[in-house]
Design a protein around this nucleic acid. Structure first.
Length: 574
RNA sequence: CGGGGCGUAGCGCAGCUUGGUAGCGCGCUUGGUUCGGGACCAAGAGGCCGCAGGUUCGAAUCCUGUCGCCCCGACCA
């Protein structure tokens, strides 16, 4: 390819809307352009990168026995009604109606469609296991699209669905995908970490891991243990209760006036208590049920754990002030667990029963109770881990001190179980002639997001630094002057030779000053640059420079191709 | 969904308060001089001032509506 011909509009200035470094650099490097909120066009070089990542994904899926298919983007509402997700999915789903008033959605994911396929075509255990995947656009009407390709409303995803005869089979498929993902992200040159994660809206049974690319701009928070291999999304991370040291109070609880004291901080300051000596009490409302949720004052409630434990379809959320008034007869800010209505279910974090002396809201204006002892003074109906973990806590596996990091979720592997196969009757007949539902798993890679994540992790002040396996071109050949015949001829010869030996190479044949060419080459991020200038050429040499390290060496013209091929072969080895 | 901000040339912006025929930098075109890290000089091209309505002799500027985009927030009692 020739720089003079490729549509690669580089920008000196950053478009005003760009927020994170990957977005800025992709726009500046002429890889993408925005078409609308969360919707992007891929320009030729951007598309090459995307295709390279796709190809790596494809190779690894095929290596594990995956079969590529292409499922429809437009999906009938009927299927989604069968699994109940037409209503559950909510405003994130793009919905449309055709001329006959039939309802459809743009696929945000493909469990329904693929399971529908399998129920029609799979009859016998002899046809299983089956691993079907596709690489295709997904559509999600994100609440707030942002960060360029990191959170778009249209994005490219590889999704594979596994169908097995039983749990053991699922575990095998799961392991295959876990290993494949490790290979994929390693091949893409990323520093990543698989973390335990929450099952989320996809539902289903069993474990799930997210593959997180560690980066400042990541939207997900993870905790990890430096001592062992434990790592988890904070949404999921198990919390160990921290015991209290002191003896329990013996005197009865009593009422104290706390004018205008509505927050934990205000109340603890006012009463001269530590924040962890308060019971934080929050009222949650679900679709048709209300819960009082208790957690230590210095802790935060993890609504994901709460939802999972109390019922994922309750749509639990913090109660409106009006609901608080109706249920407890007081304003938010003075809510507490003592003498609450008998039909109000009280749930508490593991740490609450361990509290020895506490203060809490009194369910009346401007008052709190102190010298409260949990369970002596109030009822708890259910105790479980419902709080958010924080850095510095003990690792649930080995007891080491957890650290926190931010991550970009580029992949997720997920055991679905029989949730969809049961709902859609995707059954097979086993060896004994018994009909059984397939045991399913689903496994996603955010392909376009991986491209953004790779930039987040590989850039400097001059631009992108592509890892060789996913670079748009592996080598750029730069003749320093287009006026010097010898330089141009040598550059063309080198370009041709590299090209013919299978190196992905682009030549900057524009009649530009060298500075411009160098700046553009650095910005776009070609891993290798061959510079041909008259001075070194007089000695029969050209300059080979590595984008990543800035290292450069002079190489004899005749040896260049083998030198370049050596470096590339090394980088592609895995 | 709530709040704030912004739409003026391909990109980045000024002009708007105080209405009077639209400007700067980069980029683009042509010519010349330059030529190893975003050169210089000269001459050009390029705008329905997001869209619609209103006020006015006159609107980028004031008013109303609308669309688009960006940012922040979404209640921890």
């Amino acid at each position: 390819m020739r720089v003079s011909q490729v549509l690669n509009p580089t920008l000196r200035e950053v478009p005003a809307e760009a927020e994170v470094v990957s977005q800025k650099l992709m726009l500046r490097a002429g890889l993408i352009r925005k078409a609308g909120a969360g919707v992007y066009t891929y320009l030729p070089l951007g598309l090459r990168i995307l295709k390279k990542i796709e190809q790596i994904v494809r190779e690894e899926m095929d290596a594990k026995g995956g079969q590529e298919v292409l499922l429809p983007i437009i999906q009938p509402a009927e299927l989604w009604r069968e699994t109940g997700r037409w209503d559950v999915y909510g405003p994130e789903m793009f919905r449309l109606v055709d001329r006959h008033e039939r309802e459809f959605c743009l696929g945000p994911t493909h469990e329904e469609i693929v399971t529908d396929l399998v129920r029609g075509e799979v009859r016998s255990y002899k046809q299983l296991p089956l691993l079907l995947y596709q690489i295709q656009n997904k559509y999600r009407d994100e609440r707030r699209p942002r960060f360029g390709l990191m959170r778009g409303r249209e994005f490219v995803m590889k999704d594979l669905y596994s169908f097995d005869i039983d749990e053991a089979g699922l575990n095998v498929s799961y392991k295959k995908m876990y290993d494949a993902y490790t290979r994929i992200f390693t091949r893409c040159g990323l520093t990543f970490r698989p973390v335990e994660a929450d099952a989320g809206a996809i539902g289903g049974s069993g474990g799930t891991h997210e593959f997180m690319v560690l980066a400042e701009s990541g939207e997900a928070a993870v905790v990890y243990c430096p001592e062992c291999d434990y790592a988890a999304n904070v949404e999921k991370a198990e919390c160990r209760p921290q015991p209290m040291e002191s003896d329990p109070v013996t005197e009865n609880y009593s009422l104290v006036e706390t004018p205008q004291m509505k927050t934990i901080e205000q109340v603890s300051d006012f009463l001269g208590l530590k924040q962890h000596e308060l019971v934080k009490s929050l009222l949650y409302q679900g679709d048709d049920q209300i819960f009082l949720v208790l957690v230590r004052g210095d802790r935060e409630i993890n609504e994901i754990k709460l939802n999972n434990m109390l019922g994922p379809f309750l749509n639990l959320q913090l109660a409106e002030p009006e609901v608080v008034r109706q249920t407890l007869g007081c304003e938010p800010g003075f809510v507490g667990p003592i003498n609450v209505p008998g039909n109000l279910k009280v749930v508490a974090d593991l740490e609450v029963p361990l509290m020895k002396k506490a203060a809490c809201g009194a369910n009346q204006a401007e008052h709190h109770y102190f010298n409260v002892l949990p369970e002596r003074d109030f009822r708890i109906d259910q105790v479980f881990d419902l709080r958010m973990i924080v850095a510095g806590e003990k690792c649930p596996k080995c007891g080491g001190e957890l650290k926190e990091a931010r991550g970009i979720e580029v992949g997720q592997v997920f055991k679905l179980g029989t949730k969809y196969s049961k709902a859609l009757n995707a059954n097979f007949v086993d060896e004994n002639g018994q009909e059984k539902p397939c045991v399913m798993g689903c496994y996603g890679v955010g392909v376009s997001r991986t491209m953004a994540a790779a930039i987040e992790q590989n850039n400097d002040k001059d631009g992108i630094i592509w890892p060789i396996p996913i670079a748009p071109y592996q080598v750029i050949v730069v003749p320093v002057s287009m006026k010097d015949k010898q330089v141009v001829e040598t550059a063309e010869k080198i370009y041709e030779e590299l090209r013919q030996t299978g190196v992905e190479v682009i030549i900057d044949d524009r009649d530009e000053r060298p500075g411009v060419k160098f700046k553009d080459a650095d910005l776009v991020g070609y891993p290798l640059r061959v510079t041909i200038g008259s001075k070194t050429l007089a000695q029969g040499q050209v300059e080979l420079r590595l984008r990543k390290s800035g290292e450069m060496e002079l190489v004899n013209v005749e040896e260049l191709t083998s030198r370049v091929k050596g470096i590339i072969a090394d980088a592609l080895k895995y």
